[in-house]
Structures are given as structure tokens and as C-alpha cells.
Design a protein around this nucleic acid. Structure first.
Length: 717
DNA sequence: AGCACGCCGACT
DNA sequence: GTCGGCGTGCTC
């Protein structure tokens, strides 16, 4: 170890590997580089931020005495590793190192703020393990980038003792209306109408930690899901515990935030979203850390927020793919919430209008209780849903399909437009590119109903050109304007659809919500509201009707989850429509499909159960787990040979590697290849450990190119 | 990734 | 006999 004689005369170093240049000198450079070690626990265990998988472990550093006070577990530090200066997190102070090498000194404590709590450090480690990723990558998400100014203000306030702890809302509800059943902010609690709903709330309110899969009924108004979620949060707050709500996007964030503020007057709510900018984000993070705020709502990064004494974690619409983090280690917030509820022993709500197959699996295994409305409640609260496919079946007339569908949809819209806003859900431009005449650029229209023509992936590799509204094939098309016969793709989306609808409903107000211009809300006055999938605005009193167009293009996506995803999108849109008793109706224009009948029956659980059964039969996720290994051909092969041990185990199945469709402009030579590895859920921990080890072994090999290792990516199949 | 150490060719 | 090639391996 370092001789205490260091100080200025640290000459006594073990026969130095010093360049001869310095031999005459008392090693001035070293004198400062070899400071006196801390008297207490002189060794710091540090997780460095490095993209290299082989550096994903803790390294020991010597804590200089002058840094000892600041070098607390959970602070950011700078260290030297293999010559380069890196930043990292100090996770532990210990008495001695067992590394067997001479320790480098800690270079710097970036700030004395302890930004990583033991709870979050433990969660981050669990997340890294679950996704076979690097701890440093997870910590980047758990601790937002430092904003020095915000931090110094905060430290100053803490020092001056101006850090009030929020009071839990008083048990006597402040918002007067909480009289009838159970104290929702708007009086009538939507929880009361759910089977096992009151029991869940009671359990929360008694300090318990129940776990549920929650089927929200309405998507708007005082019984909408935001109020439902806020009421659960309020119940845990009354026990003094904190709560965390994770939502897929900014609009859901706004809505959840507003509902929480209403349900918890005086209780500060932290919003966590990347769009809010670094300083606001860091401020919210510090408020949670200090316990000044005990409730957080945010998009996926928020799943790792340091809410103190967490009592409840909520994941809204857990089937939304925005819950999957697109950067390494590619965690999914649903699963992070699950891990958290286990590690922190807190309550868990996976909530949505739809049920993901993952949530269904947890319900069937008994891990989650299902909380959902009885049929009678659904009938009272929901619009009537009809599928236009039904009528073709009964009509048995192929021409009925062409003529009647748009007519039925138009008629519904026309009638509903007297009452209020009508939602028109259309596919995103990229989903179903519309077609136009190659010669005159006029949009190509259906000869039968004047709907837009689109190119869909037909069965096999066949492409079929058909009307997006009525499905009539248009394989021999001639432009009525110029006589041209060639079609070109024109990626028009909601805007053009809106124009077309505007012409079909002269005099109607047409509003669009898509892409850059997403609207959160529309007024209750009559209007056609054309929105792309997932961008549907909320009408405060519910839409009078909804037309779910482009159903077939949602269903036709080549993905294992196309049906599940389509149903989820439809339910989310249909939940924005007022009840049938008030005239609310939904029409879906899609062919015969299990997802369509599940929508008509409003049976998300039944659909999820059936879908999960299918996946079990086929041994596909989420019945099994999957790892996707992506990279150049040689990299994937190299990884596979490093992972030969796991790949050969019974129960482990591989598919590929196959070449992925190259992004346009890329040479075929440097195409990506992908190997899929399926393994049983029960062997998850062992398999992920082995995959992580294989990646390290592969990365350490000379000349190896990196691979991307992605576990349980929902989009890979 | 850097940056070390380490064992074989053309120069002082 | 030394300077230096970059092949292999580690990084507290």
C-alpha cells in the first residue's frame, strides 16, 4: 500500500517505472497524484460510464483524505481508468480492496450531492441484470444530467433548512365533492364500479401493497383513467407513502398530471419528461430525492425516479411501444415497474383500456389481480361498437362491401355530427401510404366509393392495391383525370384524409391531430376530428361517435403483435366516445379478425387470454423470453460462438441469423444480421447472465465488432 | 476504446 | 546491439 511517507517526499515508491527524465526530481507530479488516503474506509467502489461491456463492473479507487467527506456513496466522481479520465458513480466505501492491484486515486467528487440512493442503485443493478446490460447505462437513465446551477440552489436551500416535507393530504377530503362513494375528486368514484376495485383501494389505504391489472373503462371526463389513477395515488399518499406514475407520452403525462393535481391539492407533483429541458428535469429529480415531493409522473425514464418510500407504481397503457426504451439497455417500463414493486415491496398497477399479453400472463399466474368492470357497467358506460364486416358477412354480397361500408360510416358520422365531435382514426402516413396518379399526381380514388387507394401487404409477398375505406381491390386502375395507368406512393396522411372527409361533409368543421401537430383536446362542438393512431385528442364530454378507418392496415402489419396492437389502439380511441345511452357509437372498418370481434364485444381480457394461449402453443413471447443479437454477420457469428454454452442448452431455441432489410442507401455488404434466441422464462436469470458474459467474451476478442443485445424487444418479431 | 507489454526486422 | 512494428491483454 502507499507508504505514509508520501507527502512531498514520496520517493520511496516501488522502483518506479518513471521515465528517466524525472529521476533527479522528488517526483513532483506524483506527489499530488499520490495523496494521503482517507483514514476511514479509504477504498471507493466505482461504476464507470463506459460503453465497453468489459468495463461493466466495479473498480476500486483510493479516496484521498481531502475528498473523504464528500466521497459518499451515491455521488458522481471522476476517475482515471486505463489512462483516460471517466466519470462514474461512487457506489460503496469499503476498508480494503481485494483487487490485488495498486489503486488509482479518486480524481474528483463532481458534486457533494448524493444523487443515487441505495434503493435506486439496487433497482438499477436489477435492471442491468434483467436486460443483460451495463449498470452504467442504466444509471444514466436513473440520474438525469447534472444542471450545476439548479443543484447549487438546491444545496443552498437544503443547508438553510428551507426544505419542507410535503404533508400527506388530510384524510378529510379537501375537494368537498368526495361524498358519495369513496372520495374521488369528482365525487362518483369510477373505482366503485369495478370488480375488486373498492377492495384494491381499501388495501392501498390500509398501507398494503396489492398488485393489479386494471381495465379502465372511460378515457375522458371525471371517470376517465387519469382520475382513476389519481385516486389510487391519493389512497397511498394518505398512508404517507410516495407514488410513481409512468405514461407512454407527453399528452398522457399532461392528463395524468392534471388529474393528480386535482386529486392532491397542496401535494407537489413532479413531472419528469425529457422534453421539459434539463434544468426543470433536474429540479424535479432533486425534489424527489430530498423528499420535498413524493409523487412523480413521467414518461419512461421516470420508471427509475427516486420517489421516497414508494407505496405505489403505476404503468399506464403498458402495451404501448413507447414504454420500450430505444437506447441500451432497452428496458421496458412495465417490467421496471414490476421489478420495483418486488424490490421495494410496493403496490403495482398495470392499467389500460387494453390488456397486454404480458399483463395477462401475470394475471393468469396469480401475480396480478384483475380489476375490471362487469358487463352491466360496460353497457352503461361504453358506446355501441359495430363492425362493418358483419354486414358483408350477412349480405353475402361482395358488392355490398363496396357500397355499404362507406355509406354506413358516412351515415353514422352525419348523424353524430349533429350531436358533437366525431373522431376519425386513420393510420399514420407511413403505415398505409396512399397512392396517386404517376402522371398527374391526382390522388387515386376508389371507383366504387371514392375512398383513397392504398397499397397493402397482401398474403405472402403479394401486394394488393385496394381502397382504404371499403377494401375494394383496384388492380387495374385508370386515372379518371388523365387516363394514366401508373400509381405512385404519396405519403399523405391525416391531412389529406381530412380534406377528403371535408368534401364528403360539406359545411363540417374539420380538425386534424397528427405528426407535429397533435392536439390534446377538442371542444364539445360538432366537428370531424381526424387523428392518426395514437394522436386522438380528448373531447371533455366524449365524442359523439368514432370511425376507426384503416383497420386492415393496422392488422396487416407483419408483426406478432399486430392484432394485440390494433385492438389496443381501437379500444383507446373508442374509450373516448360517450356511452351508447347518450348515442355514442363506434364503427370499425376492418375485415373479419379476432381483434375486431374483441372490440365489438369489448373483451380485452378474452382477447389477451386467447392471444397468450396462442403464444404458448407456439412458444413465442411472452410465453418465453427472447434475446435479439444484431450486428454484422461476423459479429453475430462471433457472439454466437462465445455464447455456444447457452445456445446449446435444452429449452433454448435459436432462429437465424437472418439479414435484416437494409435501410435504403446502405450497401448490402454492411447489412445487419439478427439472431434470435428464445429461452424459458424460468431460466431467464441464468440465460441473461450467460448472454452478458458472452458479450464480454466476444467484445474482448481481437478485431471483434460490437453486437447489439436486446432482450424481450417487443418489435423484433 | 486506449494503452500497456512483448517478441521479431532495419538502422546507429 | 537498439528503435520500433503492431499482436495480445487489461483496465481499479
Amino acid at each position: 500500500m502507499s507508504q505514509h511517507a508520501s507527502g512531498a517526499g514520496g520517493v520511496a515508491g516501488p522502483e518506479a517505472e518513471q521515465p528517466s527524465l524525472l529521476l533527479g526530481f522528488p517526483e513532483p507530479a506524483r506527489a499530488s497524484a499520490k495523496p494521503e488516503p482517507a483514514r476511514e474506509r479509504p477504498v471507493a467502489r466505482v461504476c464507470v460510464e463506459s460503453p465497453l461491456p468489459q468495463l461493466d463492473r466495479l473498480f476500486d479507487y483510493l479516496v484521498p483524505e481531502e475528498l473523504s467527506a464528500a466521497a459518499q456513496p451515491g455521488v458522481r466522481v471522476r476517475v482515471r481508468l486505463s489512462g483516460q479520465e471517466l466519470s462514474g458513480f461512487l457506489l460503496e466505501r469499503v476498508d480494503a480492496s481485494d483487487s490485488g492491484v495498486a489503486l488509482q486515486p479518486l480524481l474528483k467528487v463532481v458534486s457533494p450531492a448524493v444523487v443515487l440512493t441505495p434503493t435506486i442503485a439496487r433497482l438499477a443493478a436489477a435492471v442491468a441484470e434483467r436486460w443483460a446490460g451495463a449498470l452504467g447505462d442504466v444509471l444514466r437513465f436513473a440520474v438525469p444530467p447534472r444542471a450545476a446551477r439548479v443543484e447549487s440552489e438546491y444545496l443552498g436551500e437544503l443547508a438553510s433548512g428551507a426544505a419542507p416535507e410535503p404533508e400527506a393530504p388530510g384524510p378529510a377530503a379537501t375537494t368537498g365533492a368526495a361524498t358519495d362513494d369513496g372520495g374521488g375528486p369528482a365525487g362518483a368514484s369510477a373505482w366503485a364500479e369495478l370488480q375488486r376495485g373498492p377492495a384494491f383501494l381499501r388495501h392501498l389505504g390500509a398501507g398494503g401493497s396489492p398488485r393489479a391489472s386494471l381495465r379502465a373503462v372511460e378515457g375522458y371526463g371525471p371517470r376517465g383513467w387519469p382520475a382513476l389513477v389519481a385516486e389510487a395515488v391519493r389512497a397511498v399518499r394518505l398512508t404517507g407513502r410516495g407514488a410513481l406514475v409512468v405514461v407512454p407520452d407527453g399528452r398522457d403525462l399532461e392528463r395524468a398530471f392534471a388529474a393528480l393535481e386535482e386529486a392532491l391539492p397542496g401535494d407537489p407533483i413532479v413531472r419528469l419528461a425529457a422534453e421539459d429541458g434539463p434544468s426543470q428535469r433536474y429540479r424535479g429529480f432533486l425534489d424527489l430525492l430530498a423528499g420535498r415531493a413524493r409523487v412523480a409522473v413521467g414518461t419512461r425514464g421516470a420508471a427509475l425516479a427516486p420517489v421516497r418510500d414508494l407505496g405505489l407504481v403505476v404503468c399506464w397503457d403498458d402495451g404501448d411501444d413507447l414504454h420500450a426504451e430505444p437506447r441500451a439497455p432497452y428496458f421496458h417500463t412495465r417490467e421496471v415497474c414490476l421489478l420495483r414493486s418486488e424490490l421495494e415491496g410496493c403496490a403495482l398497477l398495470l392499467a389500460g383500456h387494453a390488456v397486454s399479453t404480458e399483463a395477462q400472463r401475470l394475471v393468469e399466474s396469480g401475480w396480478l389481480q384483475s380489476v375490471s368492470a362487469a358487463r352491466s357497467v360496460l353497457r352503461r358506460r361504453l358506446p355501441r361498437v359495430v363492425s362493418t364486416a358483419d354486414s358483408f358477412e350477412t349480405a353475402r354480397d361482395p358488392y355490398a362491401r363496396m357500397a355499404r361500408l362507406p355509406h354506413a360510416a358516412w351515415q353514422l358520422a352525419r348523424e353524430a355530427l349533429v350531436e358533437g365531435p366525431v373522431l376519425v382514426q386513420v393510420a399514420r402516413a407511413g403505415y398505409a401510404p396512399s397512392l396517386a396518379c404517376e402522371r398527374c399526381r391526382e390522388p387515386a380514388r376508389c371507383a366504387e366509393c371514392s375512398g383513397p387507394l392504398a397499397e397493402n401487404a397482401g398474403p405472402g409477398s403479394a401486394r394488393r392495391i385496394a381502397c382504404r375505406w371499403c377494401g375494394t381491390p383496384a388492380n387495374a386502375w385508370t386515372c379518371p383525370h388523365c387516363g394514366g395507368k401508373e400509381l405512385r406512393r404519396s405519403s399523405i396522411g391525416a391531412l389529406r384524409t381530412a380534406e377528403e372527409l371535408g368534401r364528403a361533409f360539406p359545411g363540417a368543421v374539420v380538425v386534424t391531430s397528427s405528426g407535429e401537430n397533435v392536439k390534446a383536446e377538442v371542444p364539445g362542438s360538432p366537428a370531424l376530428v381526424v387523428a392518426t393512431v395514437g394522436a386522438e385528442p380528448v373531447a371533455p364530454k366524449g365524442y359523439a361517435a368514432a370511425l376507426l378507418l384503416d383497420g386492415d392496415s393496422l392488422l396487416g402489419r407483419e408483426s406478432l403483435r399486430a392484432g394485440e396492437e390494433a385492438l389496443r389502439r381501437w379500444l383507446n380511441a373508442a374509450a373516448l366516445v360517450c356511452p351508447a345511452g347518450k348515442g355514442g357509437r363506434v364503427v370499425i372498418t376492418a375485415g373479419d379478425h379476432e381483434a375486431v370481434s374483441a372490440l365489438v364485444r369489448w373483451d380485452p381480457e378474452g382477447f389477451a387470454a386467447r392471444e397468450l394461449g396462442l403464444r404458448r402453443t407456439l412458444s413465442l413471447p411472452p410465453a418465453v423470453r427472447v434475446a435479439a443479437v444484431t450486428g454484422s454477420r461476423s459479429a453475430v457469428d462471433g457472439f454466437a460462438s462465445a455464447a455456444a454454452g447457452v445456445l446449446g442448452k435444452p429449452g433454448v431455441r435459436t432462429a437465424g441469423p437472418v439479414a435484416l432489410p437494409a435501410p435504403s442507401g446502405t450497401a448490402a455488404a454492411d447489412a445487419s444480421w439478427r439472431l434470435l434466441i428464445f429461452f424459458p422464462v424460468a431460466e431467464g436469470p441464468e440465460a441473461t447472465r450467460a448472454l452478458r458474459a458472452a458479450r464480454i467474451a466476444h467484445a474482448t476478442r481481437r478485431g471483434s465488432e460490437p453486437v447489439q443485445l436486446r432482450l424481450d424487444g417487443a418489435d423484433v418479431l
